[in-house]
């Protein structure tokens, strides 16, 4: 074709053509790849690694976990057994950096030993509510129809009772059986619907994607499509919600203990200590402030982690920053 080029026709005066060297054209749809592969989770990890918020919260959480597992590393004073009324509401002394409670117990030691309670309640609650929530949400969202109607209504019923109120009832009834497992069950039984709702709406979004239809056309079974394609693409927000629920569960345990329907006073629990200290708030605020601080910092570290994860996992949230 190029051999029989037409003679150049005369162009009208307002016909402008850019010089070729100023506007070089490249090939159509040329494949150009970055050095490293990337998908949602790889990108999220790269994004997380750059965030100070992620490292600070992770460090705090690891520290909290370490304290919960080995409180003895940080103090030699037992939390309960070496309490002397002579030390009641006493100021800090050597070896007892935060002073003493009304019973004369070492505040520092009580805080350290209370960590494992908060953390175990948090972990058991999210284990319960994530497993239940993921199963309920996944089946409701993916299978739809009457499965969805039944499961979503059940979820609505549990969601309609604010979980702390529900836990108050359960714990009042089971006053003789109060322990970490029971309080976790009481909270977890009413927190799963939020996980289920988040997952369900994600799945509703994902399951209409063409890649799901393509998988059906290939001949994959419904269940394998759910497990291989739909769940991995909809689980990201659940990870965020779970981190934030862990924080909420820790607060819930402390609130219940504070109200007196949580763990019995024989358990080391920040909520219990805060509750006991409230009468002395004017005379000895430290008895109240230090356990509150421990509680707040622990909760904050999970909140920060949740926020960092949200920013990394949700491209929409990243755009909002």
């Amino acid at each position: 074709m190029s051999s029989d080029q037409k003679a150049p026709t005369v162009l009208s005066p307002d016909h402008y053509v850019a010089a070729l060297d100023e506007s070089p054209i490249s090939g159509v749809d040329v494949v150009s790849l970055d050095e490293k592969p990337s998908n949602l989770y790889i990108d999220a990890w790269r994004d997380l690694r750059r965030r100070p918020m992620f490292w600070i919260s992770s460090a705090l959480i690891i520290f909290v976990i370490f304290v919960a597992l080995f409180p003895g590393v940080f103090t030699n004073t037992p939390p309960n057994d070496e309490c002397f009324l002579s030390n009641s509401l006493g100021a800090p002394t050597a070896g007892h950096p935060l002073g003493f409670t009304k019973q004369g117990c070492d505040i520092y030691s009580r805080i350290l030993h209370g960590t494992s309670t908060s953390l175990s309640v948090g972990l058991i609650v999210i284990a319960l509510s994530s497993i239940t929530g993921i199963i309920m949400g996944a089946f409701a969202g993916f299978y739809g129809g009457w499965v969805d109607t039944v499961l979503s209504r059940i979820g609505d019923i549990f969601f309609s009772i604010p979980y702390i109120l529900a836990a108050i009832v359960v714990m009042s009834v089971l006053s003789e059986h109060r322990n970490v497992w029971v309080i976790s069950l009481a909270i977890g039984a009413f927190t799963w619907p939020s996980t289920a709702r988040v997952l369900r709406s994600e799945i509703l979004r994902v399951k209409n994607a063409d890649f799901v239809t393509a998988a059906t056309a290939i001949g994959l079974s419904r269940f394998r499509i759910l497990v291989r394609h739909v769940l991995p693409n909809s689980i990201a927000p659940v990870i965020v919600v779970t981190t934030l629920s862990l924080a909420a569960a820790i607060v819930a345990e402390a609130t219940l203990s504070f109200l007196g329907v949580g763990l019995p006073s024989t358990f080391m629990s920040w909520g219990n200590d805060i509750s006991t200290a409230q009468v002395d708030i004017r005379t000895a605020p430290q008895t109240l402030i230090y356990p509150s601080l421990a509680l707040t910092i622990t909760v904050l570290s999970f909140i920060l982690l949740g926020e960092a994860l949200r920013d990394a996992l949700d491209p929409k949230a990243r755009a909002l920053r």
Partner: peptide, 18 residues
Amino acid sequence: SLVLISVPIFVLCFLGQF
């Protein structure tokens, strides 16, 4: 906001009261 989210309500009450 993040700090405020992390402070349990009863702690907030005592801080306010105090």
